[in-house]
Design a protein around this nucleic acid. Structure first.
Lengths: 180, 180
DNA sequence: GGGTTTCATTATGGGATATAACCATGAAGC
DNA sequence: GCTTCATGGTTATATCCCATAATGAAACCC
């Protein structure tokens, strides 16, 4: 506890010294900036991530894509409906039950624009740190994100309420298998 | 663009190289672990943060507390109702319209337990990094969180849809001023 | 005292996500 | 060929979290 509770304080009490707190604050900030950035294209972060994944994996199965993104397949449907309705993406029936996902030309074009906006956003965020810092940050964050097996004795009573995180990011824990 | 799009790939495309993506993934992970950790006390992150702030600032105004935590005052009401119903916190009328917030003995006791759990959680997260790394991480994250004035030309069309992604759980951060 | 501001509350709606139940289809086995 | 089972997708439903707007009331200011 000593190392965890230095002097701290201000109005927040010890809050400011917690990694989770710092993480959340930063994430909120960045995410909000990202949302604002993509707003002019009427894209939300989840949309952007879907377009990105489909673009990188043409023909990817709907189930596989949503698993990769950590989105429940049930929630994935209306999301795709929206993108499809806007003519950005197509569901191509593979065999009567499975769909392969493809971007349309328009989808690719919009994604390109989104990427340019995203780059500006990224640069904005990166503006407050050096290249080395960025590298370290991503490395550390990735390590944190992969701490699946880290909490063995933790997560006790859990399983009662559900996460409620968000979509755009891979909430790993979700129920998803891979290929058929 | 060059620096932003190295080689990348896998199933996620360029996603893995984005700071925002890494941030989100890490944040989701940590948050979930935190939620699981506090679950046995029936506390959610928001509860924990409220208890922490009130404990550190006995008698703090309701409005001030929720502003500090970045919670809308409207949403703060049922939150406090819950804590008060559980006998953890009291609203002390100051003058007929303003309430000062105080923890009850029980509230302090529960907070102490929660803090112990939180410490374990924090240590778990910190387990994947060195002390130096942690210091750097918090420093960088804090810098990011404070990049308010960073996006002058950004946030263009914005203001159309509301944030949504903002004030969430230990949204400790968000829009908050400090002292009066 | 009357207008304005501050503080708290109620009411309402939207967004995002989890769950469960439900088809349909393809694959496997006898 | 027909049953059985796993898979992919969809629908429907419940919940949680948060935001906005409107209301009520007290304090503040001239």
């Amino acid at each position: 506890m000593d190392a965890l509770h230095p002097e701290v304080a201000g109005e927040f009490g010890p809050l400011t010294e917690y990694v989770g707190y710092a993480l959340r604050r930063a994430q909120l900030k960045v995410f909000q900036d990202f949302i604002d950035t993509l707003d002019e294209l009427d894209l939300r972060p989840a949309h952007f991530s879907v377009l990105t994944v489909v673009d990188a994996n043409p023909g990817i199965l709907q189930s596989r894509a949503c698993a990769a993104l950590g989105i429940q397949k049930a929630n994935f449907v209306p999301l795709l409906d929206g993108l499809q309705r806007r003519g950005l993406l197509r569901r191509v029936a593979l065999n009567g039950r499975a769909n392969g996902l493809h971007l349309t030309d328009e989808g690719r074009k919009l994604l390109a624009r989104a990427r340019r906006l995203h780059d500006r956003h990224e640069r904005r965020v990166l503006g407050v740190m050096s290249a080395l810092e960025r590298k370290r940050l991503i490395a550390t964050l990735s390590r944190i994100a992969g701490l699946d097996e880290v909490s063995p004795r933790a997560a006790p009573a859990a399983a009662r309420r559900s996460p409620s995180g968000s979509a755009a990011a891979p909430r790993r824990g979700s129920a998803a298998k891979r290929s058929p």
